[in-house]
Every structure is written in structure tokens, then in C-alpha cells.
Amino acid sequence: MHELTPVLSTVTASFLASFVEVVEAFTIVLAVGVTRGWRPALTGAASALAVLAALVLAFGPLLALVPITLLQFVVGVLLVLFGMRWLRKAILRSAGVIALRDEEAAFSRETDALSRQANDRRAGYLAGVAAFKAVLLEGVEVVFIVIAVGAAHGQTLQAGFGALAAVVLVMLIGLAVHRPLARVPENALKFAVGLMLTSFGVFWTGEGLGAEWPGEDFALLAIFAIIAAASLAMVRWLRNSCAAPAEGIAR
């Protein structure tokens, strides 16, 4: 069980983070396919995947040249920053400070924009570029997460399997329903991913600095619980803060 804990946490973090990113990219690719045809949609998506594969092949082997403690520290700091960005948005959305992301609305905006380009001679090219940008931008985050959560403990392959499973699952569901995956609890997933990435970051930053965590890998669970409790308390505080002015106005 002790050996399975880091593997399961790595695969889970990679799967959930990749699932969220792939859902967002799929919405754009689907809009391109429905509006301008599947040829530019699939061409743009495939081109982006090729670029991402080249990035992994180019930079992946370089990680083996970095001392493990330095790698853990750098990856840990980056994961804290990256995870906190996800966590901040998830907290604000959960508290009602900013609106939840709506995949149906995003799909409508993209199809409207593509429809307005119908008379443009470059319509097919622009549609392909839209699919390319969507897959590349979301894919870069997936690649970073896979490398980051896997590299510090030599589990890049396991993290890659988690990401691949997310891609396959989204593609199968999306192609089956042929519509945006609007019912996916995206903010809840982003909240969980933010917690996991931040927890990994804190843990690996400590390891990179030479800290010995009580319980070794099991310390991840304690770090996760502390960050989750603090985040939920912040959501409650923000909700109460937003509700107080509204009650004052109502009176």
C-alpha cells in the first residue's frame, strides 16, 4: 500500500487534470467540425498533437540530466504556482464571485464566430487554426502536468497513462453524444485538481529542500487535507462576505 500511494495519486492527478483540459479543447474542435467540417477540425487537432509530441520528445530526456533534488524543488515550486492558479479560480467560482464555465455557451460562441467567417476565402484555414490553437494550448498544460507530477518520483509513464485514459474517455463520450460535455462537473474537477497539484507541489518542494516528511509518502494525504480544509473555509468566508452586502441592500 505504501508503494501504491504515490502511483495512485500521480495517475489520479494526471487523469483529472487532463480530463478537464481535454473537455475544453474538445468543445472547440467539435464546434469547428460541426460548423466548418471535420477535415479542418481533425487536421488542426492532429497538427497540434504532433507539436506536443515533438515537445515531449525534445525536452523529456533532458529531465534525466537534472539532479533529483533540484528537479523536485523546481517542479514543486511550479506545481504550487500552477495548482494555486486552478484553486483560486475554483474557489471564486464555488463562492459565486465569478461565473462557472459553461461548455454549451462556449460551444455557441465558437460556432457563431466560425459562422461569421463563412464568406471568408480562408474560412477552412481559420477553422483549422482554431482547432490547432485549442488543442495546443490545452495540450501544453496537459504535458506540463504529466511531466511535473511524474518526473519528481520517476513516474512519468504512469502519469502519461492517466492523461491518455482521460483523452480516450473524453473522445469516446464526445463522439457518442456528439455534443459539448456540459454536464461534466468541471469546477468540482478543477477544485480537486488544484488541491492535488498544490499538495504535490508543497510535498516535492519540501523534499527538494531536504525535508523528511512524517509518514513519507502518506504525508501527501495530510497536506491535501489541510489545503482542502483551508480552501473550503475560504469558500464559506467569501460566500458570507458576498451575502452580507446583498442582505444590507435588501433591508
Rank of each mutant, 00 (worst) to 15 (best):
E3L: 13
L4T: 08
T5V: 15
L8D: 03
A17Q: 02
S18H: 03
E24T: 12
E24A: 13
I28T: 06
V32N: 01
V32P: 01
V34I: 15
R39T: 13
A48I: 09
L55D: 03
L57F: 13
A64I: 06
Q72S: 12
V74H: 05
V80S: 03
G83H: 06
G83C: 08
M84N: 08
I91C: 03
A95P: 03
V97Q: 02
F107A: 00
A118M: 11
A123K: 08
Y125A: 13
G128E: 07
G139S: 10
G139T: 06
V140W: 04
E141P: 07
V143W: 02
G150S: 07
A151W: 01
A152D: 02
H153D: 10
Q155H: 09
Q158I: 05
A159D: 04
F161Q: 05
L169V: 15
V170K: 02
L172S: 06
R179A: 15
E186R: 00
K190Q: 01
F191M: 09
G194P: 00
M196E: 00
V202G: 00
V202F: 08
W213D: 07
E216H: 14
I227Y: 01
I227R: 00
A228F: 12
S231C: 13
R236N: 11
N240P: 03
C242D: 10
E247D: 12
I249T: 11
A250L: 15
